[in-house]
Design a protein around this nucleic acid. Sequence first.
DNA 1: ACACAAATATGCAGTCATTGCAACTATGCT
DNA 2: AGCATAGTTGCAATGACTGCATATTTGTGT
Lengths: 198, 198
Amino acid sequence: MRTEGLRERKKLDTRRRIEGAALELFEQNGFEATTIDDITAAVDIAPRTFFHYYSTKEDVVLADYADRLARITDTLAERPVDEAPWTALQNAFVAVAADYEIERLQLLRRFRIMATTPSVYARSLHLQAGWEDTVAIALTDRMGLETDHDITPRLLAAAALAAMRASLRHWLAGGGTTALPQQVAHCFDRFASGLVND
Amino acid sequence: MRTEGLRERKKLDTRRRIEGAALELFEQNGFEATTIDDITAAVDIAPRTFFHYYSTKEDVVLADYADRLARITDTLAERPVDEAPWTALQNAFVAVAADYEIERLQLLRRFRIMATTPSVYARSLHLQAGWEDTVAIALTDRMGLETDHDITPRLLAAAALAAMRASLRHWLAGGGTTALPQQVAHCFDRFASGLVND
DNA sequence: ACACAAATATGCAGTCATTGCAACTATGCT
DNA sequence: AGCATAGTTGCAATGACTGCATATTTGTGT
């Protein structure tokens, strides 16, 4: 077995073609004005097939989210156990921020669509709420706490996501030219040193 | 003109009847299993009319959100200008928390539906993102900053919402029996004193 | 009580995402 | 070659939501 056989390769290819064509169309004509039929026609597959790859139109725009979360949990798991939770969290999110910068152009494309499409934005927030759950659980475990007994892990996770979102917004406002990892780190520091003025 | 005339009263009445019947049906049969037709049949209005009152099915569940936001901004505006931003914010959110406790049963009903229905949850998060915008703007103004120049107001607003959500989740887990305002205040304090352990 | 303007309610037709199901085709393995 | 499996397609149906034209109802002035 080489790269997992023709079947797998073909499937991955189709997925990428769908994503490429869809993003293209979304940018060109707007997310809502683009129908599933438009997308599948562009990729030359049956409309029904689209839903074997993505469960909603919104998910095409946010296709990278699963990897981001994996990156966070992976990094979190790698951090030494004696590291303070908030510091470990900071490292995990800075890692994602670094990824973002590398894929800057792709990201800007996706975010531009998200920012102008309510349903995509809503979906994004919903997915991020899922991240919060996952991260909160990981922290609960890491901190050796009983499940659902302490609000702390949840608060930390929520704060981390908030820091990330605020940073990202700032970064996007600047067209993705400022230093994102530094910005994220800065927001984390602000939380760590108390939010009261400066 | 007394209470705004028959027209206004009737409209308000219809709105309430829609909400009552809808929530009832959502609880009974589930949000997704309940169709617009079911709701309008129960209230004896035309299906088309539903959309004159609520723009989406989800919005019925979250009908109280507009008032919550108003409560926050109102309280925020009332706080003395020399009060620290974070403290003013805390007061505003504690006020909402107090409201929540008063309408405890209604709230539990709504939240139970929200917690079990992805689309409603997503919509809720989206609306809260709108709160974040509004609060961030109010803070920018209050702190005498240039619009979009400083990330601080956004970070504060996001943290406040995060504190509120975490508190609410905790409160709901306990069936709404614990003291919500105190919980909210506590989360705000945690942020103010830095998130690093204790 | 009457009549007209404004606000509401309704009916209808159409678009579109999304789903279940059954038939069909390509791929992998023996 | 020949079967089992995975992936693709077509079809039909559901249900939210919208635009538009047509009633109905209410507010107001006579």
